[in-house]
Write a protein that binds this DNA or RNA. Structure first.
Length: 556
RNA sequence: GCCCCCGUAGCUCAACGGAUAGAGUACUAGCCUCCGGAGCUAGUGGUACAGGUUCGAUUCCUGUCGGGGGCGCCA
């Protein structure tokens, strides 16, 4: 409903403006939600864009256009829905929706319920969102936690807009890091059996390694050094990967993040497959040999230096299986890939984009989102986060301390490209200072009112005519913005706008609640319309919270 | 040295290139005979600096200064 109104209005403005300036590019016409509600529900700046072309005062142009629109509008669906058009100072045309339009929107929310805000915009497009993809060498960190919250919410949003979305976790279960993992476990095992060992310089040092060694040796009955020596090193690796993947899956599951697909490097980037892809790249002229190594000519496609894909010792670099993996993604039919990475990988973007192009795909088919780190604060002081040593804050700690909903919301609250300050004390507070509870409180409050209204026998209205207070109309207008907010999130590939919107919606509701009595047995007709308005608000809050991966509690 | 992100109110952050730069928090003063006071109302206060593009710049471009991160035949 609301998107229809906007589209129709845009079309009308376009046609009318073309009468003044026939070669007008329709994409130049932008309808935006004004910063201040006194400027109406939609505002158009086309007169100012045309000012220099027409060599006329934009206010005059806007006046002319708005007169023409008023003449034309009678013949369209908009006639009853646009109440007023005003021309203001620099040359804005501001459009004011009529109560009829607002009531239509309310009715459609109550009818569509959890589908309100959905669209079919993405129909037929297959998108893969790959995120977290942490090496199975330790528990997940806060950095992964933020990536998980972002990827999950973004995937939800894209699905909501009709895209066919798969959320995928890529498991790097081979390579140097995994060798080091296996070796670290083995060395801890030797220590447990009393052997004096020198630990690896770049080995994994967290306590969990020793725990894992103990579990493995119990299971395999490795009670002596001799038995341990007889063990295949690959067994340590395999155990390490399996064990840690189970830990990671459990953590993500508890965090409420669910993946559709788990891909394993060992299955996808097998040596024959790698050679096949390298041959293909060679045929296309992107491979050469130098100093005993095999190089990918990524500079030809925008990278700042060429990259080794096969070292002089015959091993592949990290990049090589990754190229195969990206080819695999496209082979599975995805026409758009979204990778969510940490900031430590940003230098890696040009080479993987080069690889995608070398395989004949457009570089626009791959979006790499860099999610900046979150710094965890306690009592106003940042907690140190030296990596590698196992001294980083884990997802588990944050989740246990502040709860899933609060943690996820905090991770989503800022642009993904902005550093995030995460205050544990604030996130833990169950008070007004905490925005999560502010939103959920509004949902719980409405749920409670709806329950209570059942007693006096009030019904939730389906048709509207009595809502006219400022707070009522403001609330409907805020509700009407939801589809657009979701759509902007998808366009920007960042869910943060939705967190801000939900706070505004909750605030608009609280104001309405504070100044207007909802349940009133003396005035049932008005009361049932206000109940319906509350229910519509609840629906939108729930839809938004669900997209972000948060719960919508009926009681708190 | 090169690359990426960020400099906005005391603090944490907003503002598709638009209108008087907005919220929360803190501080001050108010609001419960009645639907959840985890709420509402009012007040105070700001674009790092220098140029450029534009009818219009917090936003885009160049430079300076400041903070964070990244730059391997590591992953």
């Amino acid at each position: 409903m609301i998107t229809e109104i906007k589209e129709n209005l845009k079309e009308l403005i376009c046609q009318t403006s073309k009468k003044l300036y026939p070669s007008l590019d329709p994409s130049a016409i932008v309808l935006e939600i004004p910063s201040d509600k006194k400027f109406g529900e939609y505002s158009c700046n086309i007169a100012m864009r045309l000012a220099s072309l027409l060599k006329k005062n934009p206010v005059d142009t806007a006046t002319t256009i708005s007169k023409l629109i008023k003449e034309e509008i009678g013949s369209t669906l908009l006639a009853q829905r646009i109440e007023d058009i005003q021309v203001v100072k620099p040359g804005f045309m501001n459009f004011y929706l009529a109560p009829k339009a607002l009531f239509d929107i309310l009715e459609s929310v109550l009818e569509l319920r959890n589908r309100y805000g959905q669209s079919q915009k993405g129909k037929g497009q297959k998108i893969q969102v790959e995120f977290v993809s942490a090496n199975p060498t330790g528990p997940l960190s806060v950095a992964h936690a933020r990536q998980a919250a972002v990827g999950d919410a973004l995937g939800n949003i894209l699905k909501f807009l009709g895209y066919e979305v798969k959320k995928e976790f890529y498991v790097n279960d081979e390579g140097n890091q995994i060798n080091i993992l296996g070796r670290s476990i083995e060395l801890r095992g030797r220590e447990i059996l009393g052997e004096k060992v020198e630990f690896l310089e770049d080995g994994y040092q967290g306590d969990y390694i020793g725990d894992m060694a103990r579990i493995f040796m119990d299971r395999e009955k490795l009670t002596s050094i001799a038995k341990l020596n007889a063990k295949d090193p690959a067994d340590f690796r395999r155990f390490g990967v399996d064990h840690l993947m189970a830990v990671i899956q459990k953590e993500l599951n508890d965090f409420g993040v669910h993946f559709d697909i788990w891909s394993f490097q060992s299955k996808i980037a097998t040596n024959p497959e790698i050679e096949k892809v390298l041959n293909e790249l060679k045929t296309r002229g992107f491979i050469y040999e130098q100093e005993g190594a095999v190089w990918f000519k990524s500079t030809a496609l925008g990278d700042d230096k060429d990259r080794v894909v096969k070292k002089s010792d015959g091993n592949y670099t990290y990049l090589t299986p990754d190229i195969v993996y990206h080819k695999d993604k496209f082979d599975r039919g995805f026409n758009r890939l979204i990778n969510i990475w940490g900031p430590d990988h940003h230098g890696y973007i040009p080479r993987i984009k080069a690889a995608v192009q070398a395989m004949g795909r457009s570089k626009e088919a791959l979006d790499v989102l860099i999610v900046q780190l979150a710094t965890i604060f306690r009592d106003g002081k940042p907690l140190s986060m030296s990596t590698r040593r196992g001294q980083y804050i884990s997802l588990r700690e944050v989740m246990d301390e502040v709860g899933c909903d609060a943690a996820r919301f905090f991770f989503l609250m800022r642009h993904i490209k902005a550093h995030l300050e995460f205050d544990l004390e604030l996130a833990k507070k169950q008070t007004a200072e905490n925005p999560v509870y502010y939103i959920q409180y509004a949902h719980a409050r409405i749920s409670s009112i709806l329950k209570m209204a059942a007693h006096p026998g009030l019904v939730v209205a389906k048709k509207f005519q009595r809502l006219k207070e400022v707070e009522e109309l403001d609330l409907i207008k805020k509700i009407s913005q939801f589809p657009e907010v979701v759509s902007i999130c998808a366009h920007q590939l960042d869910p943060y706008l939705l967190t801000a919107y939900l706070q505004e919606l909750a605030s608009t509701f609280h104001k309405f609640y504070d100044r207007n009595r909802i349940i009133d047995a003396e005035n049932k007709a008005l009361s049932s319309e206000r109940l319906a308005l509350s229910e519509a608000t609840r629906i939108v809050l729930a839809n938004g919270l669900t997209l972000l991966g948060l719960s919508s509690p009926e009681k708190m």
